[in-house]
């Protein structure tokens, strides 16, 4: 059985599927990614499927599982590079890929993850700021 390599680039794990995967290979990728997310603490996963000429229900379900597993492990998954014919076929097949974020290519996928991460940090900072301001409020209100 072949294995799909998982590359770490900064805070992102990048997977580019270049082979026609056996079902077992897809399941192995799911496991490998979960392990690497925990081992590296990466917050983003990009799965490039631009080399895939079909995505059937098994691969689709595996991608959805990977997205769910990643989220539980505090990482966001973006599937990038889906071919137009694959998108048309997936919709006709009835596969909806719940919970999967998509982008047209790796670069846009990285932008998406960076924006989401920045938005998360912003919310976190805001929360901090509120906490810090609380003790100051009575002081400021005092004459």
């Amino acid at each position: 059985m072949e294995r799909v390599p998982v590359l770490k680039i900064g805070d992102i794990l990048l997977v580019s599927i270049q082979i026609d995967m056996e079902d077992q290979t897809a399941l192995q990728l799911q496991e490998d990614l979960a392990d690497r997310i925990v081992a590296t603490g990466c917050h983003g996963v990009i799965i490039d499927i631009s080399a895939l000429d079909i995505v059937d229900s098994f691969v689709g379900r595996t991608l959805a599982s990977i997205a769910s597993i990643s989220r539980v492990l505090d990482a966001e998954t973006v599937v990038v590079g889906m071919r137009p014919a694959v998108a048309i076929t997936l919709v006709e097949l009835g596969l909806q890929l719940p919970g999967i974020r998509t982008a047209l290519n790796v670069e846009l996928g990285m932008d998406l993850l960076a924006r989401e991460r920045a938005a998360d940090d912003w919310e976190f900072d805001e929360g901090d700021a509120e906490d810090e301001s609380e003790p100051e409020t009575p002081a400021a209100a005092a004459p």
């Binding site: 000429d53 995505v55 059937d56 098994f58 071919r83 014919a85 048309i88 076929t89 097949l93």
Partner: peptide, 17 residues
Amino acid sequence: SLVDQTKLVTAASELAR
């Protein structure tokens, strides 16, 4: 056509599985 190739290969994959 490319789309029909994709549909047929996908259908074949489902049914073979």
